[in-house]
Structure formats: structure tokens, C-alpha cells
Simulated assay, not measured.
Amino acid sequence: MSAIMDTAANANRQAATMDNNPAEAPAVTIAPLPLPKTGNRRSSMPSWLMQIIAPLLGLAFLVLVWQIIAMNNSQFPTPLLTLQEALKLFADPFYRTSPNDQGIGWNILASLQRVGVGFGLAALVGIPLGFMIGRFRFLSSMFGPIISLLKPVSPLAWLPIGLLVFKSANPAAIWSIFICSIWPMIINTAVGVQRVPQDYMNVARVLNLSEWKIITKILFPSVLPYMLTGVRLAIGTAWLVIVAAEMLTGGVGIGFWVWDEWNNLNVPHIIIAIVVIGVVGLLLEQLLVALAKAFTYEQVAN
């Protein structure tokens, strides 16, 4: 019993000594608390499945909002009613009973034809002009104020000028496409030429290359990404403008078809036309994106 009491007394004296002399106390190591892992966690869902589900959820949300609007407005068609009308409409999209009564397929083709002609003319004029403006400082100073003045003008403001000059609705619509498509091509091409590294031009001067070789061997490969960006911007603007121009000029076209359906108070057909316009515009843009990827070369890091 006395031995136990002596041991306890020694322990108490040792603890008191440590309290009076902290330096002699043994170091105590406190293990850090484990922190929650907040790093980038990989989703358990495969990426290809996410690329499918995410757009479908977006479309489902759009349809839900559409259904809510239709429930609160009796004049607005429901998604189901619009789908039924679309199935009837696309069952025979290329019928033709009269010049003013044609299927939606013919109207889309008529609009695409106008866009193709106006856009092609704009490319033939705008891209070479952009090369010259970017290449020669005098031309840049000469055309710069003109472009700055005319570029902000709405394309539809040019439609009366086209009707006055061409005396016909179809050339006037093509003129509107041309005038709205040419500015992105000129500006992006000119900027691309001006951003070609000066070292390339110095090498061309040392080698005494002709202007044609400078354009084809140096400028064109360097400017191609800028030029294709201008083409993409131009085709999107052209498709927007043709719908509005056809509403004003009439005839055959998706824009005139929308306006005609509005006069008939056929709201489901108007919604179908809106979807068709969006899908066609998306396909045109994706086509040009694929073209840009095919002709654009990226630097690969070693």
C-alpha cells in the first residue's frame, strides 16, 4: 500500500515540475483533422451520356414553359397540338396548288436560294476587298469611313433602295442579303491581313516575291481563320434578314409564309415556322463550322 502511495506521490511531483518548467515537458504532436476532399470530382456519369441528357433536359424545360404559357392563354397552342399540325404539314411539304399556296418545303428552298445568291455575291466582292483594304494603307484610309458609316445601318433600311433600283421584290431581297453580308467579310478579312506577322512580310521582301505569291502563299493561309469567321457571321445575319425582307416583299419564302399564316391567325404554323427557321440557321452555321475546322490548322505543342 505504501509503495502505491509513493508511486502516486512521485507522479504528482513530476507533473508539477513539468508545469513549472514547460521547456522540459515532452512535445505533444497533435494529428491534423482530416479535411473533406473538395477537389474536382469526376462525375460518375459518362461524358457521352451527359452530352445527350443535358440537351434533352433543356428541350424538356422549354416544352414545360411552353405548356405553362398555353395553359394560361387559350389562344396559344399547346406543344401537342403544334406537333400534330407539324406532322400534317410535313406529310406533304412540296405540294403546289397555286403561286400563293405552296408547301413549306418550297418556301424554305426559295429563301435559301435568295440567301445563296446574295451571300455568294457578297463573298465575291467582300473577301477580295477585305484583302486589299488590309494590304494597302491608302485603301484602308479610303474605305474606313465608308464602312464605319454604312455598317450600322439596318439591312431592312436598304430594302426600299433595292425596290427603287431593281423594280422587283426578288432582286430587292437579294440586295438586302448582299448589303448585310458584305460587312463582316470585309472587316474580318482586313483585320486578318493586318495581323499577319511582319516577319513573314520581311521574308517575302527578301525573297522578292510577287504580289500574287504573297497573297496566295502568305496572306491567304494566315487570314483563312479570320475570313471563315466573317463568313459565319455573314451567313447568320443573312438568314435573319431574309425572313424579315420576305415579310415585306411577299412572294414565295419562309418569311412570307409566316406573315401569311399570321393573316390567317394560324398560330401553330407560325410556331412551326419559327422552329424551322432556327433549325435551318443552326444547320447552316454547323456546316460552316465544319468547313472552318477542315481548313484551319492549329499549332500543336511539343
Rank of each mutant, 00 (worst) to 15 (best):
S181Y: 02
G250Y: 04
V258H: 01
V193D: 09
I242V: 13
W175K: 01
I187L: 15
I215Y: 12
A172W: 05
A234D: 02
I218E: 06
L219P: 02
D260S: 15
G253W: 05
W158L: 10
L224K: 03
P225M: 09
Q194V: 08
V258A: 13
S210F: 12
Q198V: 15
L207P: 03
T229F: 05
E211N: 14
V243M: 13
S176G: 09
W183M: 06
N208W: 00
G250V: 04
S222V: 05
F178W: 00
L224C: 07
T216Y: 14
L209E: 08
G253M: 12
K167F: 03
S181L: 01
I174E: 03
I214R: 13
W212D: 09
L163Y: 05
I179L: 07
A169H: 08
N170L: 13
T216I: 15
A169Y: 10
V165H: 11
I214E: 12
A238P: 02
I254E: 01
D260M: 14
W239E: 02
W175S: 12
V191N: 13
L240S: 13
W239C: 01
I182P: 04
G255D: 08
W175H: 09
V165D: 13
V243H: 12
G236M: 03
I214Y: 07
P171W: 06
W175P: 01
N208Y: 04
G236K: 04
K167A: 13
A157N: 07
E246I: 04
L224E: 06
W257R: 11
N170P: 11
I218K: 11
E246S: 05
L240H: 11
M201D: 11
L219Y: 09
V252T: 09
